[in-house]
Computed example of a mutant assay.
Amino acid sequence: MTQQADVVVVGGGQAGLAVGYYLRRQGVYFEILGSDPAPGGSWQQMWDSLHLS
């Protein structure tokens, strides 16, 4: 069975991840679409101390 997303977030950078955080808190089923191989956008190259959990 395939579940259909209520919301699609375009972009897996800082803003997209922040939106995803708040959508999850509200219990909304969503998908984040991004072109980078990993989430976080420029955070990955700028700050070594940042870790997604």
Rank of each mutant, 00 (worst) to 15 (best):
M1K: 09
M1Y: 04
M1E: 09
T2I: 12
Q4W: 02
Q4R: 15
Q4C: 03
Q4E: 14
A5Y: 08
D6N: 10
D6Q: 14
V7I: 13
V7H: 10
V8A: 12
V8S: 07
V8N: 03
V8W: 00
V10H: 03
V10W: 01
G12K: 00
G12R: 01
G13Q: 06
Q14V: 15
A15V: 13
A15N: 13
G16T: 12
G16H: 07
G16K: 05
G16E: 11
A18P: 00
A18T: 13
V19D: 01
V19T: 11
Y21D: 13
Y22W: 14
Y22H: 14
Y22G: 00
Y22D: 06
L23A: 04
L23F: 05
L23D: 04
L23S: 05
L23Y: 03
R24S: 12
R24F: 01
R24D: 12
R24T: 12
R24I: 02
R24W: 02
R25P: 00
Q26D: 08
G27M: 08
G27F: 05
G27I: 08
F30K: 05
E31W: 02
I32Y: 01
I32D: 03
L33A: 09
G34E: 06
G34D: 12
G34R: 00
S35P: 06
S35F: 04
S35E: 14
D36E: 15
P37M: 05
P37D: 13
A38Y: 10
A38M: 10
G40P: 01
G40A: 07
G40T: 09
G41Y: 04
G41A: 07
G41W: 01
G41E: 04
G41T: 04
S42A: 10
S42I: 15
S42H: 10
W47K: 02
D48K: 09
D48E: 14
D48N: 11
D48T: 13
S49A: 14
S49Q: 12
L50S: 09
L50Q: 08
H51G: 15
